[in-house]
Design a binder for these strands. Sequence first.
DNA 1: CTGTTAGCGCGTTCAT
DNA 2: ATGAACGCGCTAACAG
Lengths: 330, 330
Amino acid sequence: MTTIKDVAKKAGVAVSTASLAINHSSRVSKETAKKVLDAAAELHYQKNGWARDLKMKKTQIIGVVLHDLSGSFYAPIIKGIEETLHSYGYGLIACSTAGENLGTAERFLRERRVDGVIVFSADIKNETLFDVCRAHFPLVVLDREISHANLYSVTVDNLQGGVLAAEHLINHGHTSIGYISGPSNNWDSQLRSKGFTECLSQNGLSVPSKWHIKGDYSQRGGYQAARLLLQQEQLPSGLFVSNDQMAIGVLEAFAEAGVSVPDQVSLIGFDDIELARYIRPSLTTVKQPKYEMGATAAHQIIQHLQGSPSKEHTMLTTEVIQRQSTAKLD
Amino acid sequence: MTTIKDVAKKAGVAVSTASLAINHSSRVSKETAKKVLDAAAELHYQKNGWARDLKMKKTQIIGVVLHDLSGSFYAPIIKGIEETLHSYGYGLIACSTAGENLGTAERFLRERRVDGVIVFSADIKNETLFDVCRAHFPLVVLDREISHANLYSVTVDNLQGGVLAAEHLINHGHTSIGYISGPSNNWDSQLRSKGFTECLSQNGLSVPSKWHIKGDYSQRGGYQAARLLLQQEQLPSGLFVSNDQMAIGVLEAFAEAGVSVPDQVSLIGFDDIELARYIRPSLTTVKQPKYEMGATAAHQIIQHLQGSPSKEHTMLTTEVIQRQSTAKLD
DNA sequence: CTGTTAGCGCGTTCAT
DNA sequence: ATGAACGCGCTAACAG
């Protein structure tokens, strides 16, 4: 390991001078600077980030903790975070919590390797968050309602999303309505349910229990839920599936069973993942503003870092993206 | 910022004792350990990773530099890397080079914030790689042929992949063959072309220039290339599109023009991205072993770190995944 | 079992 | 314009 000491020696100057030269300070003469830079190049000198960070107490890097680095759902969120951070001169590094592997993520949160962290993973418990958040170390949590000092949160109005799904089916003339819900211990899922069923009942409608199946947010779960639905004597004409991943499984099961979407049943999903556009029939869905979520989170981190106050909680709205999988009932 | 010093003072012990206690050394008595841990909890003490790394000269973390953190193409690769690293007790952090934003990536490479780096991004130039690779800092480059001390590479046999694509079309009875190639300055793309055209000519076939369109590996580029193809009087019966992203664009353009796949033209792509299974018609394609690429890269890094030698270059093979977009010509 | 001391590599006073 | 000395927070050698 060649250090700045070696460079200084080779250039025949003091360490401090070498440091100044390498960091392009104007306080050093052109000639000495050149000498130092040449020596550095010759010795293949590379700064030691650890030492630098320790001294400077900042990195200009924000950490992002995701459940799954490779999930397509996260893509637009990351993009939103990245572009925003970049515009402020910050970089981003990401790690995942998949596979019970909390090690790296917790080290991010606890050991202050970055200037702040954005968390989007249910694997990190609230207590952990409370435990690690400190002054001068901003934390933004996505998709979770939580309140604490130095802790910001960005959520999506899942309740309103559920309402939109119900309204969409109602406006398309559907009165026999089915529902494949998400995991009941899931916060998002509960709110989507609440919005959906309440809006239905305000319109004098409800989901009969034979048409209400519980799913697990996975594609496979959606497939299985649809199989259950298909065993009923009759199918609803409108169906809300509480996330797109499951909706894709439902579409598969329906295709296998020869049930035509949207002719026999109109299907509306939730999330608007990338696949929703490409699957056939393409999927009508309640869109989460993913890019915006990322951008908002990044803004909050930066504002905190720059000492300007910012709202502790931000809630974003959803909208329906009409595609092929829903149609008017005549 | 509360440091280990504060904890030691509060617990009434020396800093070193506090350190031992916090790191669960057996060399410290139960009582003192409890005193220290209690003090730490009370003061909300969190280790400072920067200082620790500086001292330990290692992090047990591997960095991954990707062109695009949110590209679905990378998903299985990351998974392969992650699972392998995890099995060795290493963690992973990732950053991207998208948007001309090399800052973070270069800092990873230069400033030794991690124990080793896996690079999968054409944005990082060879010279940079040569410049930053040093002893005890293993670098693995994916999808690039490169040779240097402390530098490992993992590639996919694109040449063979091109051959497979040609063979597939030939075996399905196609003799009028079109080709939408990738960017000509791209190394992968060149090899795919070479394998494809050479195999064709060995079978007495070739791609007439009217049916050879150059694309740019983007979906939009594929769409445009297909429009160009559609302007010809006649369409080939078999078409090789040199990546799936473009193939999806081609499928769109064909669907718009009422050209049926595979009845009128058989289409084979390259990569086997996730979407290939879901799009309709589903896409026959030459699969890159992405998970394996990631796993191999991770193994090489770890082996180097553990002092065991390993092959400097590994080349993986491709295979054809038959789906709906190609059919036998009768 | 515990305290003292040293130093990791860097950036930054404060002198000269 | 340049150099000597210091300290960031931590771990590890060596004493006691």
